[in-house]
Structure formats: C-alpha cells, structure tokens
Amino acid sequence: MSADHADPARRPVARKVARVVLLDPQDRILLLHGFEPADPADDWWFTPGGGLEGDESREEAALRELAEETGITRVELGPVLWRRYCSFPFDGRRWEQDEWYFLARTDQTETAPAGLTELERRSVSGARWWTCGELSAARETVYPTRLAGLLRTLLDEGPPDAPVVLAPEIV
C-alpha cells in the first residue's frame, strides 16, 4: 500500500459529482473562477456543481450546488450532456471525480453565492457569463479542457441523444 493510501488524510477523495452547463437566453455559459487556496495565481474557470450529499440524486445535487454557488434558482434542468472522470490535486489532497454535466437554462443572470462552503470561500473568486466566442478565444485554463468545442457543438446541434463520455482528465 502506498504512503498516500496508508494515511487517511492523504487518501484520494472519491466523489460522485453533478455539474451544470448553465445557459442564459443569449446562449452564454456561466463559469466560476477558482484557484488553489495555497497559490491564488494557480487559477482556472469551471462549471458550477459539486458532490452529492447523502442519498440525493444527481439532479437534486445539480440544482442544490447551483443555488449554493450562484444563488440562481430559476432553472430549467435538462438532460445529461457529458460524463467525465477526472483526478487532480487540490488543497493538499487528490480528488477523483465521476462527473455528470447537466444542461440547464435560466433567465436569472445575477449571481449571489450565499451558500459557499468554507473551502469554496477560500478558492472561488467570482463568476462570469461567457459567449462561445469568448470561451474559444480564452487563454485561461477552463475545465473540462474541451469546453469551448463542446459548447459550440451543443449550440449547433442541440443536446446529444445519450450522454457523451469525455476523455478522462488526470492532472
């Protein structure tokens, strides 16, 4: 057994995660700006969402996380667009996530992240609505890494008939 697995504080955090591809009436996507708590210069953009709590469904988790992280509650939750496995270091731990990305639409564009966890308060610095063109031209790190192309396909072709399994991302 590796040293990481012997020490409970070092074991990977395995989570089932629900994420939201939230679009406004102009087809802009909402992304959150996050950073490594120990190094704020190590930053990225990502979709709202997080881990399931208790026995809640992925749909329930998606709506709860969206409300906590953005204050947006007037949402029409659609189908699962994509599924992805990812593994990454964050806040001194390794996280392993089975992520489902739900399509959602809203006309509520003002954000008010009143329900952030302690860790989120130390690692999320804001939110921004992005057009597909802005996302395609972005020089910042965005997760999932192919989000600009995925969004373009979604806007051009509509949701897939079944969730698309994205390539794993291991950092």
Rank of each mutant, 00 (worst) to 15 (best):
E118F: 00
E36S: 14
A18D: 02
L135G: 03
P25H: 13
R74H: 13
C86W: 06
A138Y: 08
L150Y: 12
A41Q: 15
A114R: 15
T47Y: 14
P79M: 13
R93L: 09
E60N: 00
C86F: 01
P113E: 05
V17Y: 04
R84V: 07
R122F: 00
G78V: 05
W44D: 08
L150N: 11
A112Y: 03
D42S: 05
G50P: 12
L116V: 01
W100R: 11
W45T: 06
L31I: 08
T106F: 03
L155P: 06
L22T: 03
A41I: 02
L150M: 11
D24K: 07
E120F: 03
A61P: 10
S87N: 04
P40G: 10
G92S: 08
L135I: 02
A62F: 04
Y143E: 11
R15H: 02
T141I: 01
P113H: 13
P89K: 08
G54I: 10
S125N: 07
L66G: 02
G115W: 01
D161Q: 11
K16F: 05
V20M: 03
S57E: 00
G133W: 09
A137H: 10
V124F: 13
V124W: 10
P40I: 05
R105Y: 04
P160L: 05
P25S: 14
F102K: 06
H33L: 09
D161Y: 01
G92R: 06
T145E: 14
R74L: 10
Y85I: 02
A104C: 04
E68T: 02
A112T: 03
